[in-house]
Amino acid sequence: MTAPIRVLVCDDQVLIRTGLVTIIDAQPDLEVAGECGDGQAAVDLAGRLRPDVVVMDVRMPVLDGIEATRLLAGAGVPHPVKVLVVTTFNLDEYVYEALRAGASGFLLKDAPPAQLLHGIRTVATGAALLDPEVTRKLVGRYATRIRPAEDPRHDIPLTPRELEVLRLIADGLSNSEIAAALVISQETVKTFVSRILAKLGLRDRVQAVVYAYRQGLAT
C-alpha cells in the first residue's frame, strides 16, 4: 500500500480548521500531519513534520498566508512544500499574490468537501489546481501587473500548436475544455502541457499562465 498524503492544515478560525481536519482525516489516502492557526506556525511545523501538502488560509495573525507560502514554496527554497490556498472569493488579490509567492493552486472556502479532497490529491501529484472561471477573472484583472516593463521575448521555443494550447491555458481553460476547443483528446492535451512546461522550464500550470501574460500571449 502507498503511504497516505500527509497534510498540514493552517487556518486561524478554529471551527473551519476543525472541519478541514475532520474531512481530511476521514479519507484512507490522506492523513493530517498537523494543524495550526498562523503562518509562522505553519512554516515552523512544515520544517519539522515535512508534510506533502499545506492547506493554507490567507489572512492570519503573526504571519499571513502569502508570506508563509513564500517561505515554504517560493523561488530559492531548498525543499519547497506544495501549498494549496483556501480563501474567499472577495480576496482574489490575495490569491494572486499567493500564486506569485509559489502556491500550487487555490480553492474557495465554500467549495464542497469533495472538491477540497480532489484539490489536495491534485496538488500532491505536482499538478497545479486552478478553478477556470476564477482564474479568468483573477489573472485578467491583474494582467498589467504580471507583464514586465521590458519587451517580451519573440523567440519562444514552442510550436504553433503548443502556443495555441498555452493561450488557452492562460484563458483559464481546463484540459477537458482545451480538448473540446481543439477537437483532440485529453491525453493529447496533457502531453502538450507537459511539453510546454518542460520547454519553458516552468514548474506548473500557474507559472504557465503568468508566463503567457508576461510574453503578451494573452490579454
Rank of each mutant, 00 (worst) to 15 (best):
T2I: 09
L8H: 03
D11R: 06
V14T: 15
L15E: 15
L15K: 15
R17K: 09
L20P: 12
V21H: 12
D29K: 05
L30M: 12
V32Q: 04
E35P: 00
E35V: 06
G37M: 01
G37Y: 00
G37L: 02
D38F: 08
Q40I: 11
V43K: 07
D44T: 13
A46R: 04
G47E: 03
R48V: 14
P51N: 03
P51V: 07
V53Y: 01
M56A: 10
M56W: 08
P61V: 14
L63D: 13
G65H: 12
E67N: 15
T69C: 11
A73K: 03
G74I: 02
A75H: 09
P78C: 11
K82G: 00
V83T: 08
L84Q: 03
T87K: 07
T87A: 13
T88D: 13
F89W: 08
F89V: 13
N90A: 14
E93I: 12
Y94S: 15
Y94C: 10
E97Y: 11
R100F: 06
R100A: 14
A101G: 09
A101N: 06
G105K: 00
K109P: 00
K109V: 09
A111M: 10
P113A: 12
A114E: 13
A114N: 08
Q115S: 09
L116T: 01
L117F: 03
H118G: 02
H118I: 04
G119R: 02
I120Y: 01
A124I: 04
A127H: 06
A128P: 04
P132S: 12
E133L: 05
V134Q: 08
R136V: 00
V139Y: 05
R141H: 07
Y142F: 15
Y142Q: 11
A143T: 03
I146M: 11
D151A: 15
P152C: 13
L158F: 06
L166V: 05
L166G: 08
R167W: 02
L168P: 02
G172L: 02
L173V: 10
L173I: 08
N175Y: 10
I178D: 14
A180Y: 10
A181F: 08
V183K: 15
S185L: 11
Q186E: 15
T188N: 11
V189A: 10
V189E: 09
S194K: 11
L197H: 06
K199P: 00
L202I: 05
L202C: 05
V209P: 00
A212M: 08
Y213T: 04
G216K: 07
A218R: 07
T219N: 11
